[in-house]
Design a binder for these strands. Structure first.
Lengths: 194, 194
DNA sequence: GGGTCGATACTCGGATCCGACCAATTGGAT
DNA sequence: ATCCAATTGGTCGGATCCGAGTATCGACCC
């Protein structure tokens, strides 16, 4: 009975399950809701993928189509709801995502791996520009935080992802600035006369 | 002449270009080399994807097939080399990857977004286990660093990606531990009687 | 009363991804 | 000699991803 079809690759499926736990919804409404709550900062919500993900969740019986209404001559909308299995899987998935850190491949890491190929000065320039972007990003996160949590518009629990992203941005910034400093101090040896 | 075909989506293509800049190579050798240098920590190197990526780079004329030898009755191997355009694009890509931080969607962020759905105690448990994994991961990174840099087997420049990953892991660990502490201190309000 | 703009709602096809499989060869143990 | 395991080198097909397109409706505007 456990219907243990494989977990969807796309985390967007997690968001879909989360939304349907609150109430039945049709795909377009999911996208709209995610964007309203600014959860599109945490999930890459693309129309095409959304419909694929919903279809695949239905195949797995984690969600099921409820009704398909039509307003005027517009495309009909199909409303989905979670199933009991879907609710179980949502919690299990969430739990595992938190428990065990996934191996990730951020693009910056791949770039760093070849930093030497860029030459000392160009590398310094590029890193400096990055630092600027990171500062801006951190400022935005702090502002968003203040507007929501400090202003009491929502409890901190619902801004944890912003908090986490902020800490990570700060850490990256610190590292980038350290590398720039080391380049300047001549502490970071570069190959040949690059 | 600039042949400005779109940049491959897969960062593995960057690694391929980087390798071919050193010397011509056939795909299997690329995979082997990347693994020897432990660059498979930075790039997700999957056989299937590798051959796709190589084909797509060839279509774009960033690399070109050199010769296709055959030893005995084994599958013939096709050796590729970079083109002038490939070299240009490699540097430009690298530069941009460093200059402008990409929007990324780590799985942990999506999980955090629904942490509230997990209940206070289960969340605490899961986070605690994660902290353990992160500590182990950080220890490994530190050990790898020592074995290579401190032992003088390679200059620091070639271990920057390990250094960066370590700093990020440490930052994540600090945050996770903070959240656990806040849960324990009752500072992090949870919805209803969860 | 035609025009454009922005929601609403979804489809489609081409590109990409990648695990699983195939097939020959070498290198030791048995 | 023989057989198994590992290495070499690569193909294939099914799943997934997602940008671009389609088509309707309501509002507002001169």
């Amino acid at each position: 009975m456990s219907m243990d079809s494989k977990r969807p690759a796309n985390p967007l499926a997690l968001a879909v399950l989360g939304l349907l736990l609150e109430q039945p919804m049709h795909p377009h409404a999911m996208a709209a809701t995610l964007r309203e709550r600014e959860l599109d900062r945490a999930f890459k919500v693309t129309t095409g993928s959304l419909y694929d993900v919903v279809r695949s969740l239905e195949r797995a019986d984690w969600i099921s189509a409820r009704e398909t209404t039509q307003v005027g001559g517009r495309p009909q909308r199909t409303v989905y709801a979670h199933t009991a299995e879907g609710r179980r899987q949502f919690v299990a998935w969430l739990d595992e995502l938190i428990r065990v850190p996934a191996k990730e491949y951020p693009k910056f890491i791949s770039a760093i791996s070849y930093l030497g190929a860029l030459g000392r000065q160009p590398a310094r320039d590029a890193l400096t520009e990055r630092a600027g972007h990171l500062i801006a990003r951190a400022d935005q996160a702090r502002a968003a935080w203040r507007e929501v949590v400090d202003a009491g518009r929502a409890p901190r629990l619902f801004m944890l992802e912003v908090e986490y992203a902020l800490r990570m941005t700060e850490a990256e910034l610190a590292w980038v600035e350290q590398i720039i400093a080391d380049i300047d101090a001549g502490v970071l040896a570069w190959p040949d006369a690059a």
